[in-house]
Design a protein around this nucleic acid. Structure first.
Lengths: 314, 314
DNA sequence: ATGTTCCATATAAATTATATATGGGAATGT
DNA sequence: ACATTCCCATATATAATTTATATGGAACAT
């Protein structure tokens, strides 16, 4: 068994088809069929059920797929370590960021500070959604993630709260309510809500919905956004309104205005997630720096929405 | 990069020589040299420093060796899972046992009970010394181990006490003290102690030495035994006396007598060790069964040394 | 019924790993 | 100081393995 076999295995499982997987892998279909068969023979199990249209994982295939992914993840980690060592760095950290987290001012600050403190350590940033980050952590494709809780999968991951981000309302330019800098949630009763699919961030999604319920209404769902940051252009396009993390006010997508909310505003929680059971000193250092940056940003400068942050309004 | 490259890498590192590693791998030396060079080229680092006599790991080689071992361990785990699934079993557990632990009556009892409760789960037993077991856990070659604490490497492993085993004195047949069923530690002041090297079980080793110190003497060291269980034949050969876990009384190596000790007897601690950060239900079940067996053995039958367990004495 | 989709098989070509033969450099022994 | 030994590197040849091309057959859609 080679790592190649596992790569092929995962590709076929992901595509549900030999033909498409072969295409993705850049090889032809027959060798792929052959290699999978060879793997199945060696393992003594049937990984896929061959259907007339494509293939489907068997039960044992599902179990092994998980382990195969983890193994390939470790290979990536190995290669990353080697590449780092080749460049003379003393280490590296692969950080995964949940949707729109990279817009938080503490992120670039953390990276900058950390690079000053440990110049030989490389930081790789990667943006994705919370469930995908959970998987990447499990597969060892990343070492730490800033996620929007809750994150399932208890014992394997350590999750600790990082901060609670305020949320603001995003309105399209020229909206009747857009003249007021401050809004209440219940003013949005009849507006269509632009919101990302629940799968991409169940925690934040639910926080918005329950805040609306507390305010006495069930939001009318409009267009779905493919990710949190994409709500802004959709709002700008006039498809509805949205409740987004405050840090998104950095996006001035051609005519969106941001408006603060009262105490009933939903809060976007953020947490640090990492694999349990390993004390990598670099990671501890990173977390310390990150927390310090969060504290500093919180104490020092709450960016004021009213001074120019409302985008190109009026 | 293939897993083969890593296998070769580890083999060369273990042997400190291309020639010997090739021999061990069952291939010739030139292809091995070539493959290592290829790996080094791909990674962009020098793994070995070529000396006139053999090779030595470079600093980066040492770092990568650890990860390579872990990767190969995961491959083993993958193959083991697949093999198990092929045989229709629902899972498997690989258990590592520290020296002489397999002689404890709770071990076969645990295996038997566990097999009754979960007939589709296979248990693989493996015997080694505590430091090697720690490594095997790290490399995922085993899932759980019964070790003699202390075990270093804090955050990566979960270690929890299992039981404290009594120790007894092993005397060669015909020894002046062999007539008494009960001894005090200080009676052994002038005897040469047969003991295993400290590296194989620092905890138990130190427990014996400090018990002697508490009894007012420093034991005179005799022949070293390659492992705990091997002390018995050496005692039988008349090379000295030894303090061994009570469970060793099962070994009647041609004329050894076992004698209980007073309150000053050193105690052989045993603990369960496993990788942190994973909730494998099977493992939890196994631990529950193991602890239950320990409780039962403790309550029910403390085997009495005086009834026939003293070997073929007189 | 007919064409399309998609996996399996067979054979040929290319790539890759291994074996054999040999050379060179540094320690070791006389 | 010299020959010898040890051990890794290189070169070439052979064997094994992976991939590509061509083709067949089963199920589904029109």
């Amino acid at each position: 068994m080679d790592l190649r076999h596992l790569r092929y295995f995962v590709a076929v499982a992901d595509n549900g088809s030999f033909t498409r997987a072969a295409e993705q892998l850049g090889i032809e279909q027959p060798p792929l069929s052959q290699q999978i068969k060879q793997l199945e023979n060696e393992l003594g199990v049937l990984l896929f059920q061959r259907l007339t249209r494509g293939v489907r994982l068997t039960d044992v295939g599902m179990i092994l797929l998980d382990q195969a992914r983890a193994l390939l993840g470790m290979q990536q980690q190995f290669l990353a370590t080697a590449q780092g060592l080749a460049r003379g760095e003393k280490g590296h950290i692969r950080v995964g960021l949940a949707g729109a987290v990279s817009l938080l001012p503490m992120i670039p600050l953390t990276v900058r500070r950390f690079r000053e403190l440990w110049p030989d350590v490389t930081i790789y940033l990667e943006e994705s959604n919370t469930p995908a980050l959970r998987k990447s952590l499990h597969d060892r494709a990343i070492d730490i993630a800033i996620v929007r809780p809750p994150v399932p999968d208890g014992a394997e991951l350590l999750v600790s709260p990082l901060l609670e981000e305020e949320t603001v309302v995003a309105l399209p330019k020229g909206h009747p309510l857009a003249t007021r800098p401050h809004l209440e949630l219940e003013m949005l009763v009849d507006e269509p809500f632009i919101i990302f699919p629940r799968e991409l961030g169940p925690g934040f999604h639910d926080a918005i919905l329950s805040a609306c319920h507390n305010a006495g209404f069930t939001p009318r769902m409009g267009q779905q956004a493919p990710q949190i940051a994409s709500t802004v252009p959709l709002v700008a396009a006039g498809l509805g309104v949205s409740v987004v993390p405050r840090s998104l006010h950095q996006i001035h997508s051609g005519g969106v205005t941001y408006h603060s909310l009262g105490a009933k505003a939903p809060r976007a929680e953020l947490a640090i997630a990492m694999r349990a059971g390993q004390h990598v000193p670099l990671l501890s250092n990173f977390i310390t720096t990150l927390r310090a940056c969060c504290r500093d940003m919180h104490a020092g400068g709450q960016t004021d929405l009213s001074k120019g942050d409302r985008g190109d309004e009026t």
